[in-house]
């Protein structure tokens, strides 16, 4: 190992500053391409469409991204750990309806209803994880089951109920752009810190990268997985609370396909679908890319159906880019 390439690095000073700097460089190198893509897409619409240029447009992009972005933070963690949760859209529906009931019928104080909603989300997420590690049935199947079962639960809970007109204090959680944006950034920062700075979070990368190596290294793989699904469920619940507050009504049809939008944002951001790599910052940017395209296209008069086609192409292109970059190494 004492060749020219390494002897030069041996003299570098391993101080705390260089460590932080190394990490920053490392993190930037991972994310600059998606940032550049987002800037480019924004620039294209900026040039093509005059009404797109306003600050309000920028705000509305963030505002519209916020609810899905919160949900997608959880999806990011689950995907990094090599898992998959297709049921978060339905967890979203159950929590939305439940919080509606807690507020409109049980008349709980707002904070308690919110806490209850988060708890239900955590519980349903954990259930996904527990069923998987207990039965060995693959994540895809278990959470596909969860997708329909939780949806059914939401419908049962909501049937015959009018869940609307919530207290003002609750509505402020989803009102305007600023509060949802603040919640989005808070959720993203906390999830990011969880993944990069904590033992449980950092192990998600190891488990997603190579579960067997992690197990042999003494990582409690099964228990950790349950926690990741639990976190995913909790963040889906937070997103649901934001949306119910914003709309001022709850119904079981909400949240439909949200899991797919979340996965799309995660993938566009550059988190691997196969586990072991990724990050919340990437997901946020992926979500902003999707929202920018949606908003930009509608400003240019392109209909929703065409927007969907565009997003579909972007998803495939993003993964192709990832595959191509890997094979080029």
């Amino acid at each position: 190992m004492a060749d020219a390439q390494n002897s030069s690095t041996a003299v570098s000073n391993p101080g705390a500053t260089s460590r932080t700097f190394d990490r920053l460089i490392h993190e930037f190198m991972q994310i600059w391409q998606v940032v550049a893509a987002l800037a480019l897409i924004y620039l294209v619409f900026f040039v093509l469409s005059p009404p797109f240029r306003s600050f309000d447009t920028l705000l509305s992009i963030f505002g519209q991204a916020s609810i899905l972005a919160v949900l997608a933070c959880g999806t990011t963690v689950v995907l990094i750990s090599g898992g998959l949760d297709l049921s978060v859209g339905s967890i979203f529906a159950v929590v939305g309806v439940s919080v509606g009931i807690l507020l409109a019928e049980v008349n709980l104080p707002v904070w308690l209803a919110v806490l209850g909603g988060l708890g239900i989300g955590a519980g349903l997420g954990a259930l996904n994880g527990i069923v998987q590690v207990a039965t060995g049935v693959p994540a895809f199947i278990v959470t596909l089951g969860g997708l329909t079962a939780y949806k059914g639960l939401a419908e049962i809970l909501a049937s015959g109920r009018d869940l609307s007109r919530f207290p003002d204090g609750f509505q402020s959680l989803g009102a305007g752009y600023l509060v949802p944006m603040a919640i989005m950034f808070a959720a993203a920062i906390l999830t990011g810190l969880f993944l990069t700075r904590t033992r449980l979070g950092s192990r998600a990368f190891a488990i997603g990268g190579n579960e067997e190596v992690a197990r042999l290294a003494g990582v409690p793989v099964k228990r950790s997985r349950i926690y990741y699904y639990m976190l995913g469920g909790t963040l889906a619940a937070l997103a649901a609370i934001m949306e119910v507050a914003k709309l001022n009504f709850a119904m079981p049809a909400r949240g439909q396909s949200y899991e797919l939008f979340a996965i799309a944002a995660v993938v566009i951001g550059g988190t691997s679908l196969f586990g072991g790599r990724g990050g919340v910052g990437k997901t946020l940017i992926g979500m902003l890319i999707m929202q920018t395209i949606t908003v930009g296209l509608s400003y240019m008069g392109v209909g929703t159906s065409y927007q969907r086609i565009a997003i579909g192409i972007i998803i495939i292109a993003a993964v192709y880019w990832d595959v191509w970059r890997r094979s080029a190494r």
Binding site: S202, G209, A217
Partner: peptide
Amino acid sequence: YQDLALVNEISITQNVFLGRE
């Protein structure tokens, strides 16, 4: 273990301390 010593996707630091952070 043969072939099961390191996780490719995580850093050297994380690999050395994996399971004993």
